[in-house]
Design a protein around this nucleic acid. Sequence first.
DNA 1: ATGAGTGCAAAGGCTTTGCATTAGG
DNA 2: CCTAATGCAAAGCCTTTGCACTCAT
Lengths: 149, 149
Amino acid sequence: MMSSLNNTEIHTAVHDLLHNAGQRYTDKRRAIIDILIQAGKPMLIADMLGKAKKMPQSTLYRNLLVLEEASAVVRVVTNSESGCYELAEHLMGHHHHMVCSKCGAVRDVVVPEGLEHELEKALEKVARSEGFSIDRHQLDLIGRCKKCK
Amino acid sequence: MMSSLNNTEIHTAVHDLLHNAGQRYTDKRRAIIDILIQAGKPMLIADMLGKAKKMPQSTLYRNLLVLEEASAVVRVVTNSESGCYELAEHLMGHHHHMVCSKCGAVRDVVVPEGLEHELEKALEKVARSEGFSIDRHQLDLIGRCKKCK
DNA sequence: ATGAGTGCAAAGGCTTTGCATTAGG
DNA sequence: CCTAATGCAAAGCCTTTGCACTCAT
């Protein structure tokens, strides 16, 4: 049901996603995807600007919106001062986040599939009774990482 | 394990929390807590400013930080443009959020206690193996509400 | 050629800060 | 009395927008 792709497959998938959205897979967009692949975790916009030193802010911001619209990346909600993005779930696999409330570090975490499935069933049931239709869920563990404990 | 308090009990509890933190329970802070009690759900800073018409922005922002520091309120992370706060869990009871990705409406939702407990156990186990200590978790269902479906 | 994508700089919007005034204990 | 809290305005910071230039098809 769930799988992550290798780097080449990811680029191909993103190319297709953009193409279907009537967008081009330009060098800058490829560079952004490469950064997210290499990081393997959610990246702050501030950090992405540090990694891609030649990329103007406006280009990064605009392309993140395009990539999000095409479902290649998702914006991760955090309490950080700057925006945070990662590859979409169908590229990364379903997972959750451990967020350090002190230093802001984010690590990916996977819960047992059985429990995940049970949780989804329960959430679906509650949501249906409220007339709410679920697109996805986001689970964050907030606490202290090894360094900040 | 799970309980919500009545309004008077909440004010008393907040008073004690602030007192323990060496802070005073002033009129403005009480007004903020009243707004959150009345709303019964997470409130955007923008909306709180609308409710408390006489409160300057700086007073609201500063007091939210004080109340958060004293564990009376928590900042809810959203993709909204402005900050979002609600009463802390020990005042509200543990719950999760259904967030409409179109209109931004937030509803509280409670999952069966058994499942919640099982989930916590599993999360604790994963976190421990990473040297991460969990303070709390946040689970959001993202989708469409009845109106926006 | 022709519209999408890019770069630079300026504008926008939410949040924080400085400082003088007021109030709670 | 004395420090914390408040109010107003200005400054900060992240993000968005305008416009001219460049690139890919």
